[in-house]
Design a protein around this nucleic acid. Structure first.
Lengths: 223, 223
DNA sequence: CGGATTATTGAGTAGCCTCAAGATACGTGG
DNA sequence: CCACGTATCTTGAGGCTACTCAATAATCCG
Protein backbone atom coordinates (compact mmCIF):
# COMPACT_ATOMS: atom_id res chain seq x y z
CA UNK A 1 0.00 0.00 0.00
CA UNK A 2 2.01 2.96 -1.21
CA UNK A 3 -1.06 5.09 -1.83
CA UNK A 4 -0.95 6.48 1.67
CA UNK A 5 2.53 7.78 1.21
CA UNK A 6 1.35 9.64 -1.86
CA UNK A 7 -1.45 11.30 0.07
CA UNK A 8 0.89 12.32 2.81
CA UNK A 9 3.44 14.14 0.70
CA UNK A 10 0.92 15.84 -1.55
CA UNK A 11 -1.28 17.00 1.31
CA UNK A 12 1.32 18.49 3.55
CA UNK A 13 2.24 22.20 3.23
CA UNK A 14 5.88 21.37 3.75
CA UNK A 15 6.01 19.44 0.49
CA UNK A 16 2.94 20.20 -1.59
CA UNK A 17 4.51 23.20 -3.28
CA UNK A 18 7.03 20.97 -5.00
CA UNK A 19 6.36 19.59 -8.47
CA UNK A 20 5.35 16.00 -9.03
CA UNK A 21 8.73 14.46 -9.84
CA UNK A 22 10.22 16.04 -6.77
CA UNK A 23 7.31 14.90 -4.63
CA UNK A 24 7.86 11.41 -5.98
CA UNK A 25 11.44 11.42 -4.70
CA UNK A 26 10.26 12.36 -1.27
CA UNK A 27 7.50 9.77 -1.27
CA UNK A 28 10.15 7.12 -1.68
CA UNK A 29 11.69 8.02 1.64
CA UNK A 30 8.50 8.39 3.61
CA UNK A 31 6.88 5.75 5.77
CA UNK A 32 3.17 5.90 6.51
CA UNK A 33 1.47 4.37 9.52
CA UNK A 34 -2.04 4.21 10.93
CA UNK A 35 -2.96 4.48 14.57
CA UNK A 36 -6.11 3.97 16.61
CA UNK A 37 -7.36 6.33 19.24
CA UNK A 38 -5.15 6.34 22.31
CA UNK A 39 -2.08 4.86 20.67
CA UNK A 40 1.22 6.58 21.31
CA UNK A 41 2.83 7.86 18.12
CA UNK A 42 6.06 9.05 19.61
CA UNK A 43 7.69 9.41 22.99
CA UNK A 44 11.12 10.42 24.24
CA UNK A 45 12.23 6.84 23.62
CA UNK A 46 11.34 6.96 19.94
CA UNK A 47 13.92 7.45 17.24
CA UNK A 48 14.34 11.01 16.08
CA UNK A 49 12.28 11.51 13.01
CA UNK A 50 10.06 14.06 11.39
CA UNK A 51 6.44 13.18 12.10
CA UNK A 52 3.73 14.57 9.83
CA UNK A 53 0.01 14.17 10.38
CA UNK A 54 -1.80 13.29 7.16
CA UNK A 55 -5.21 12.35 8.58
CA UNK A 56 -6.88 12.51 11.99
CA UNK A 57 -5.32 14.36 14.89
CA UNK A 58 -2.70 14.01 17.59
CA UNK A 59 -2.47 15.29 21.09
CA UNK A 60 1.02 16.62 21.79
CA UNK A 61 1.94 16.81 25.45
CA UNK A 62 4.73 16.58 27.97
CA UNK A 63 5.04 14.89 31.28
CA UNK A 64 6.15 17.33 33.92
CA UNK A 65 8.66 16.58 36.65
CA UNK A 66 6.01 15.34 39.04
CA UNK A 67 4.43 13.15 36.38
CA UNK A 68 1.50 15.32 35.40
CA UNK A 69 0.37 15.51 31.83
CA UNK A 70 0.95 18.93 30.35
CA UNK A 71 -1.12 19.54 27.28
CA UNK A 72 0.73 21.40 24.54
CA UNK A 73 -1.36 21.39 21.38
CA UNK A 74 -3.35 19.38 18.93
CA UNK A 75 -1.67 18.51 15.65
CA UNK A 76 -4.02 18.42 12.66
CA UNK A 77 -3.37 17.17 9.12
CA UNK A 78 -0.42 19.08 7.68
CA UNK A 79 1.13 19.76 11.07
CA UNK A 80 4.43 18.20 11.89
CA UNK A 81 6.77 17.68 14.77
CA UNK A 82 10.24 16.50 15.55
CA UNK A 83 12.06 18.85 13.23
CA UNK A 84 14.08 20.36 16.04
CA UNK A 85 15.89 17.09 16.72
CA UNK A 86 17.40 17.59 13.30
CA UNK A 87 19.23 20.57 14.57
CA UNK A 88 20.78 19.16 17.65
CA UNK A 89 17.96 19.78 20.07
CA UNK A 90 16.89 16.67 21.89
CA UNK A 91 13.20 15.98 22.15
CA UNK A 92 13.40 15.89 25.91
CA UNK A 93 10.00 14.73 26.98
CA UNK A 94 7.43 15.15 24.26
CA UNK A 95 4.68 12.65 23.67
CA UNK A 96 2.12 12.30 20.92
CA UNK A 97 -1.05 10.29 21.14
CA UNK A 98 -3.77 9.70 18.54
CA UNK A 99 -7.06 11.39 19.41
CA UNK A 100 -8.91 9.38 16.76
CA UNK A 101 -8.04 7.06 13.91
CA UNK A 102 -5.00 8.83 12.58
CA UNK A 103 -2.54 8.47 9.77
CA UNK A 104 0.99 9.68 10.19
CA UNK A 105 4.07 9.90 7.96
CA UNK A 106 7.59 9.47 9.19
CA UNK A 107 10.74 10.77 7.59
CA UNK A 108 14.06 9.68 8.97
CA UNK A 109 16.30 12.40 10.30
CA UNK A 110 19.11 11.70 7.86
CA UNK A 111 16.75 11.51 4.89
CA UNK A 112 15.23 14.81 5.85
CA UNK A 113 18.65 16.37 6.15
CA UNK A 114 19.48 15.20 2.65
CA UNK A 115 16.26 16.64 1.31
CA UNK A 116 16.99 20.02 2.83
CA UNK A 117 20.28 20.14 1.00
CA UNK A 118 18.70 19.06 -2.26
CA UNK A 119 15.79 21.48 -2.06
CA UNK A 120 16.80 24.87 -0.67
CA UNK A 121 13.21 26.06 -0.95
CA UNK A 122 12.31 23.48 1.62
CA UNK A 123 14.43 25.34 4.16
CA UNK A 124 12.56 28.55 3.51
CA UNK A 125 9.24 26.77 3.84
CA UNK A 126 10.39 25.16 7.05
CA UNK A 127 11.54 28.48 8.42
CA UNK A 128 8.13 29.93 7.70
CA UNK A 129 6.31 27.04 9.29
CA UNK A 130 8.61 27.11 12.30
CA UNK A 131 7.84 30.78 12.77
CA UNK A 132 4.14 30.02 12.74
CA UNK A 133 4.59 27.15 15.13
CA UNK A 134 6.56 29.25 17.56
CA UNK A 135 3.85 31.90 17.36
CA UNK A 136 1.50 29.22 18.68
CA UNK A 137 3.92 28.30 21.45
CA UNK A 138 4.14 31.98 22.11
CA UNK A 139 0.42 32.17 22.85
CA UNK A 140 0.68 29.40 25.37
CA UNK A 141 3.68 31.00 27.02
CA UNK A 142 1.74 34.23 27.26
CA UNK A 143 -0.97 32.24 29.03
CA UNK A 144 1.44 30.90 31.60
CA UNK A 145 2.76 34.36 32.39
CA UNK A 146 -0.69 35.37 33.54
CA UNK A 147 -0.83 34.59 37.20
CA UNK A 148 -4.58 34.58 37.56
CA UNK A 149 -6.49 31.69 36.12
CA UNK A 150 -9.38 34.01 35.37
CA UNK A 151 -7.07 35.96 33.06
CA UNK A 152 -5.83 32.84 31.33
CA UNK A 153 -9.34 31.61 30.70
CA UNK A 154 -10.46 34.99 29.39
CA UNK A 155 -7.44 35.10 27.11
CA UNK A 156 -8.10 31.59 25.90
CA UNK A 157 -11.77 32.21 25.14
CA UNK A 158 -11.08 35.54 23.54
CA UNK A 159 -8.43 33.96 21.32
CA UNK A 160 -10.70 31.11 20.29
CA UNK A 161 -13.43 33.53 19.38
CA UNK A 162 -10.99 35.66 17.43
CA UNK A 163 -9.53 32.75 15.49
CA UNK A 164 -12.95 31.37 14.60
CA UNK A 165 -14.36 34.84 14.03
CA UNK A 166 -17.44 33.79 15.98
CA UNK A 167 -18.90 34.69 19.33
CA UNK A 168 -20.60 31.31 19.57
CA UNK A 169 -18.49 28.20 19.37
CA UNK A 170 -17.69 24.78 20.74
CA UNK A 171 -14.73 24.24 22.99
CA UNK A 172 -12.32 22.12 20.97
CA UNK A 173 -11.43 19.72 23.75
CA UNK A 174 -12.46 18.24 27.06
CA UNK A 175 -12.50 20.37 30.16
CA UNK A 176 -9.65 18.41 31.71
CA UNK A 177 -7.49 19.05 28.66
CA UNK A 178 -8.35 22.72 28.63
CA UNK A 179 -7.50 22.85 32.32
CA UNK A 180 -4.17 21.22 31.59
CA UNK A 181 -3.54 23.60 28.70
CA UNK A 182 -4.28 26.58 30.93
CA UNK A 183 -2.05 25.19 33.63
CA UNK A 184 -4.76 24.70 36.19
CA UNK A 185 -7.01 22.01 37.65
CA UNK A 186 -10.40 20.98 36.26
CA UNK A 187 -12.00 22.15 39.50
CA UNK A 188 -10.69 25.67 39.18
CA UNK A 189 -11.60 25.81 35.51
CA UNK A 190 -15.13 24.75 36.32
CA UNK A 191 -15.44 27.43 38.96
CA UNK A 192 -13.98 30.15 36.77
CA UNK A 193 -16.38 29.33 33.97
CA UNK A 194 -19.25 29.56 36.43
CA UNK A 195 -17.98 32.90 37.52
CA UNK A 196 -18.00 34.23 33.96
CA UNK A 197 -21.52 32.92 33.56
CA UNK A 198 -22.77 34.53 36.74
CA UNK A 199 -21.19 37.80 35.62
CA UNK A 200 -23.16 37.46 32.36
CA UNK A 201 -19.99 37.60 30.31
CA UNK A 202 -20.61 34.22 28.70
CA UNK A 203 -23.21 31.49 28.60
CA UNK A 204 -22.32 27.85 28.47
CA UNK A 205 -24.09 24.56 27.91
CA UNK A 206 -21.59 21.76 28.02
CA UNK A 207 -18.92 22.68 25.53
CA UNK A 208 -21.08 25.22 23.79
CA UNK A 209 -19.92 28.75 24.55
CA UNK A 210 -21.45 32.08 23.72
CA UNK A 211 -19.60 35.27 24.50
CA UNK A 212 -22.07 37.92 25.62
CA UNK A 213 -19.72 40.72 26.55
CA UNK A 214 -16.39 40.71 24.77
CA UNK A 215 -15.41 44.07 26.23
CA UNK A 216 -15.59 42.87 29.77
CA UNK A 217 -13.92 39.59 28.81
CA UNK A 218 -10.95 41.50 27.45
CA UNK A 219 -10.82 43.74 30.46
CA UNK A 220 -10.29 40.66 32.58
CA UNK A 221 -7.21 39.79 30.54
CA UNK A 222 -5.64 43.08 31.53
CA UNK A 223 -6.24 42.25 35.14
CA UNK B 1 33.11 54.39 9.92
CA UNK B 2 32.46 51.15 8.12
CA UNK B 3 34.79 49.17 10.32
CA UNK B 4 32.00 48.31 12.72
CA UNK B 5 29.95 46.77 10.01
CA UNK B 6 32.88 44.56 9.17
CA UNK B 7 33.20 43.37 12.73
CA UNK B 8 29.54 42.62 12.95
CA UNK B 9 29.31 40.35 9.93
CA UNK B 10 32.54 38.52 10.58
CA UNK B 11 31.80 37.94 14.25
CA UNK B 12 28.30 36.58 13.97
CA UNK B 13 27.72 32.81 13.64
CA UNK B 14 24.97 33.46 11.16
CA UNK B 15 27.43 34.88 8.64
CA UNK B 16 30.97 34.06 9.70
CA UNK B 17 31.02 30.74 7.85
CA UNK B 18 30.76 32.57 4.53
CA UNK B 19 33.87 33.48 2.55
CA UNK B 20 35.18 37.04 2.43
CA UNK B 21 33.64 38.19 -0.84
CA UNK B 22 30.24 36.95 0.30
CA UNK B 23 30.65 38.59 3.69
CA UNK B 24 31.52 41.79 1.87
CA UNK B 25 28.18 41.72 0.07
CA UNK B 26 26.35 41.37 3.33
CA UNK B 27 28.35 44.11 4.99
CA UNK B 28 27.05 46.47 2.35
CA UNK B 29 23.50 45.94 3.49
CA UNK B 30 24.12 46.10 7.18
CA UNK B 31 23.75 49.13 9.41
CA UNK B 32 25.65 49.34 12.68
CA UNK B 33 24.61 51.41 15.68
CA UNK B 34 25.89 52.02 19.18
CA UNK B 35 23.77 52.33 22.28
CA UNK B 36 24.38 53.33 25.85
CA UNK B 37 23.11 51.46 28.84
CA UNK B 38 19.37 51.75 29.23
CA UNK B 39 18.62 52.75 25.65
CA UNK B 40 15.84 50.89 23.88
CA UNK B 41 17.07 49.07 20.78
CA UNK B 42 13.74 47.87 19.52
CA UNK B 43 10.13 47.89 20.59
CA UNK B 44 6.84 46.80 19.02
CA UNK B 45 6.78 50.16 17.24
CA UNK B 46 10.11 49.61 15.52
CA UNK B 47 10.40 48.56 11.92
CA UNK B 48 10.77 44.87 11.36
CA UNK B 49 14.41 44.09 10.96
CA UNK B 50 16.94 41.51 11.95
CA UNK B 51 18.87 42.72 14.96
CA UNK B 52 22.27 41.25 15.70
CA UNK B 53 24.38 41.98 18.75
CA UNK B 54 28.03 42.52 17.88
CA UNK B 55 29.28 43.89 21.21
CA UNK B 56 27.83 44.31 24.69
CA UNK B 57 24.51 42.78 25.68
CA UNK B 58 20.79 43.31 25.43
CA UNK B 59 17.95 42.53 27.74
CA UNK B 60 15.05 41.07 25.80
CA UNK B 61 11.70 41.31 27.54
CA UNK B 62 7.98 41.72 27.10
CA UNK B 63 5.43 43.84 28.82
CA UNK B 64 2.58 41.75 30.12
CA UNK B 65 -1.07 42.72 29.98
CA UNK B 66 -0.94 44.47 33.31
CA UNK B 67 2.21 46.35 32.39
CA UNK B 68 4.76 44.26 34.23
CA UNK B 69 8.14 43.63 32.71
CA UNK B 70 8.63 39.99 31.81
CA UNK B 71 12.25 39.09 31.41
CA UNK B 72 12.94 36.76 28.53
CA UNK B 73 16.66 36.48 28.00
CA UNK B 74 19.93 38.25 27.57
CA UNK B 75 21.31 38.53 24.06
CA UNK B 76 25.08 38.37 23.85
CA UNK B 77 27.38 39.06 20.89
CA UNK B 78 26.37 36.78 18.04
CA UNK B 79 22.78 36.45 19.19
CA UNK B 80 20.06 37.89 17.05
CA UNK B 81 16.38 38.62 17.13
CA UNK B 82 13.58 39.67 14.89
CA UNK B 83 13.95 36.88 12.36
CA UNK B 84 10.40 35.66 12.94
CA UNK B 85 8.89 38.84 11.56
CA UNK B 86 10.42 37.76 8.27
CA UNK B 87 8.07 34.88 8.20
CA UNK B 88 4.82 36.62 8.85
CA UNK B 89 4.85 36.50 12.61
CA UNK B 90 4.39 39.91 14.12
CA UNK B 91 6.70 40.87 16.93
CA UNK B 92 3.76 41.59 19.19
CA UNK B 93 5.31 43.04 22.28
CA UNK B 94 9.01 42.42 22.46
CA UNK B 95 11.43 45.00 23.73
CA UNK B 96 15.21 45.13 23.79
CA UNK B 97 17.29 47.36 25.97
CA UNK B 98 21.04 47.78 26.22
CA UNK B 99 22.49 46.46 29.48
CA UNK B 100 25.80 48.20 28.83
CA UNK B 101 27.49 50.05 26.00
CA UNK B 102 26.36 47.89 23.13
CA UNK B 103 26.84 47.69 19.42
CA UNK B 104 24.12 46.29 17.24
CA UNK B 105 23.72 45.54 13.55
CA UNK B 106 20.50 45.88 11.66
CA UNK B 107 19.53 44.17 8.46
CA UNK B 108 16.34 45.21 6.71
CA UNK B 109 13.71 42.57 6.38
CA UNK B 110 13.71 42.69 2.57
CA UNK B 111 17.51 42.59 2.37
CA UNK B 112 17.59 39.59 4.62
CA UNK B 113 14.99 37.87 2.51
CA UNK B 114 17.12 38.44 -0.57
CA UNK B 115 20.17 37.05 1.17
CA UNK B 116 18.34 33.89 2.13
CA UNK B 117 17.50 33.28 -1.51
CA UNK B 118 21.06 33.97 -2.62
CA UNK B 119 22.69 31.82 0.04
CA UNK B 120 20.74 28.64 0.70
CA UNK B 121 23.26 27.63 3.35
CA UNK B 122 22.11 30.62 5.33
CA UNK B 123 18.69 29.01 5.70
CA UNK B 124 20.21 25.88 7.13
CA UNK B 125 22.30 27.90 9.53
CA UNK B 126 19.26 29.88 10.53
CA UNK B 127 17.24 26.72 11.09
CA UNK B 128 19.96 25.41 13.37
CA UNK B 129 20.21 28.62 15.30
CA UNK B 130 16.44 28.86 15.60
CA UNK B 131 16.34 25.38 17.02
CA UNK B 132 18.89 26.37 19.64
CA UNK B 133 16.99 29.51 20.43
CA UNK B 134 13.73 27.68 20.84
CA UNK B 135 15.50 25.21 23.11
CA UNK B 136 16.24 28.21 25.31
CA UNK B 137 12.61 29.32 25.20
CA UNK B 138 11.76 25.75 25.98
CA UNK B 139 13.68 25.88 29.23
CA UNK B 140 11.83 28.97 30.30
CA UNK B 141 8.48 27.43 29.43
CA UNK B 142 9.40 24.40 31.47
CA UNK B 143 10.07 26.77 34.35
CA UNK B 144 6.68 28.35 34.10
CA UNK B 145 4.92 25.01 34.18
CA UNK B 146 6.33 24.39 37.62
CA UNK B 147 3.81 25.71 40.05
CA UNK B 148 6.12 25.99 43.02
CA UNK B 149 8.69 28.75 42.99
CA UNK B 150 11.02 26.53 44.96
CA UNK B 151 11.00 24.09 42.04
CA UNK B 152 11.63 26.84 39.51
CA UNK B 153 14.57 28.16 41.46
CA UNK B 154 16.05 24.71 41.92
CA UNK B 155 15.66 24.06 38.20
CA UNK B 156 17.22 27.39 37.36
CA UNK B 157 20.23 26.90 39.61
CA UNK B 158 20.71 23.34 38.53
CA UNK B 159 20.63 24.40 34.89
CA UNK B 160 23.12 27.18 35.43
CA UNK B 161 25.47 24.84 37.17
CA UNK B 162 25.08 22.29 34.41
CA UNK B 163 25.72 24.79 31.63
CA UNK B 164 28.78 26.22 33.30
CA UNK B 165 29.93 22.82 34.47
CA UNK B 166 30.67 24.33 37.85
CA UNK B 167 29.16 24.05 41.30
CA UNK B 168 30.37 27.51 42.19
CA UNK B 169 29.30 30.41 40.04
CA UNK B 170 27.98 33.95 39.87
CA UNK B 171 24.35 34.64 39.15
CA UNK B 172 24.31 36.26 35.72
CA UNK B 173 21.85 39.01 36.56
CA UNK B 174 20.22 41.03 39.28
CA UNK B 175 17.83 39.40 41.70
CA UNK B 176 14.91 41.35 40.35
CA UNK B 177 15.62 40.13 36.84
CA UNK B 178 16.00 36.56 38.01
CA UNK B 179 12.73 36.92 39.85
CA UNK B 180 11.07 38.19 36.71
CA UNK B 181 12.62 35.39 34.68
CA UNK B 182 11.30 32.84 37.15
CA UNK B 183 7.89 34.45 37.10
CA UNK B 184 7.90 35.51 40.73
CA UNK B 185 8.56 38.52 42.93
CA UNK B 186 11.95 39.58 44.31
CA UNK B 187 10.60 39.04 47.82
CA UNK B 188 9.71 35.43 47.17
CA UNK B 189 13.00 34.79 45.42
CA UNK B 190 14.90 36.18 48.37
CA UNK B 191 12.98 33.96 50.77
CA UNK B 192 13.41 30.85 48.66
CA UNK B 193 17.15 31.40 48.42
CA UNK B 194 17.29 31.75 52.19
CA UNK B 195 15.40 28.52 52.50
CA UNK B 196 17.91 26.66 50.33
CA UNK B 197 20.69 28.12 52.44
CA UNK B 198 19.13 27.09 55.73
CA UNK B 199 18.64 23.59 54.33
CA UNK B 200 22.37 23.58 53.52
CA UNK B 201 21.70 22.92 49.85
CA UNK B 202 23.51 26.04 48.73
CA UNK B 203 25.54 28.90 50.15
CA UNK B 204 25.29 32.40 48.84
CA UNK B 205 27.13 35.68 49.26
CA UNK B 206 25.54 38.31 47.08
CA UNK B 207 25.47 36.83 43.61
CA UNK B 208 28.03 34.21 44.41
CA UNK B 209 26.45 30.76 44.61
CA UNK B 210 27.87 27.46 45.69
CA UNK B 211 25.84 24.31 45.35
CA UNK B 212 26.51 22.01 48.29
CA UNK B 213 24.05 19.22 47.63
CA UNK B 214 23.08 18.75 44.00
CA UNK B 215 21.12 15.60 44.78
CA UNK B 216 18.72 17.33 47.09
CA UNK B 217 18.52 20.30 44.74
CA UNK B 218 17.38 18.03 41.94
CA UNK B 219 14.92 16.27 44.20
CA UNK B 220 13.22 19.60 44.76
CA UNK B 221 12.68 19.94 41.02
CA UNK B 222 10.68 16.74 41.03
CA UNK B 223 8.52 18.14 43.78
C1' DC C 1 30.42 60.16 49.75
C1' DG C 2 25.36 60.55 49.11
C1' DG C 3 21.02 59.73 46.45
C1' DA C 4 18.79 56.19 44.20
C1' DT C 5 18.01 51.73 43.14
C1' DT C 6 17.84 47.07 44.72
C1' DA C 7 17.50 43.49 48.28
C1' DT C 8 15.72 41.68 52.53
C1' DT C 9 12.44 40.82 56.16
C1' DG C 10 7.82 40.89 58.26
C1' DA C 11 2.72 40.63 58.35
C1' DG C 12 -1.55 39.85 56.28
C1' DT C 13 -4.39 38.06 52.64
C1' DA C 14 -6.15 36.17 48.36
C1' DG C 15 -6.12 32.70 45.08
C1' DC C 16 -5.73 28.15 43.85
C1' DC C 17 -4.65 23.44 44.89
C1' DT C 18 -5.99 19.12 47.06
C1' DC C 19 -9.11 15.87 48.74
C1' DA C 20 -13.64 14.10 48.77
C1' DA C 21 -18.25 13.20 47.31
C1' DG C 22 -21.97 13.61 44.22
C1' DA C 23 -23.80 14.52 39.43
C1' DT C 24 -23.52 14.15 34.66
C1' DA C 25 -21.99 12.36 30.31
C1' DC C 26 -19.95 8.80 27.52
C1' DG C 27 -19.46 4.51 25.28
C1' DT C 28 -19.72 -0.35 25.19
C1' DG C 29 -21.91 -4.69 25.14
C1' DG C 30 -25.89 -7.27 25.63
C1' DC D 1 -31.34 0.82 21.71
C1' DC D 2 -31.14 0.82 26.36
C1' DA D 3 -28.60 -0.12 30.69
C1' DC D 4 -24.80 -0.21 33.14
C1' DG D 5 -19.97 0.90 34.28
C1' DT D 6 -16.53 4.28 33.80
C1' DA D 7 -14.66 8.56 33.04
C1' DT D 8 -15.42 13.35 33.40
C1' DC D 9 -17.34 17.30 35.50
C1' DT D 10 -19.14 19.95 39.34
C1' DT D 11 -19.47 21.61 44.03
C1' DG D 12 -17.82 22.11 48.80
C1' DA D 13 -14.34 22.63 52.57
C1' DG D 14 -9.78 23.39 54.20
C1' DG D 15 -4.99 24.49 53.91
C1' DC D 16 -0.88 26.41 51.95
C1' DT D 17 1.77 28.99 48.76
C1' DA D 18 3.13 33.16 47.10
C1' DC D 19 1.53 37.81 46.38
C1' DT D 20 1.10 42.65 48.08
C1' DC D 21 2.24 46.37 50.98
C1' DA D 22 5.43 48.46 53.96
C1' DA D 23 9.72 49.43 56.23
C1' DT D 24 14.60 48.72 56.79
C1' DA D 25 19.09 47.31 55.09
C1' DA D 26 22.46 46.89 51.68
C1' DT D 27 24.57 48.27 47.11
C1' DC D 28 25.41 50.53 43.11
C1' DC D 29 27.11 54.46 40.62
C1' DG D 30 28.30 58.88 39.61
Amino acid sequence: MTTHEHICVSIVPLFNHLNSPDQKRIKDRVISKKYDKGEVIFSPDSDDQLTIVSRGSLKIYRLSENGKERFLRIAKPGDYDGESSLFGVTNDNMFAEALEKTEVCFLRQSDFQDLLKEYPDLSLKLLTMNAQKSAQTEIQTQLLWMEKIEQRLAFYLSNLSYELDLEVFELPMQMKDIASYLGTSPETLSRELKRLERAQIITRTRRHIQILDMDRLEKIIEN
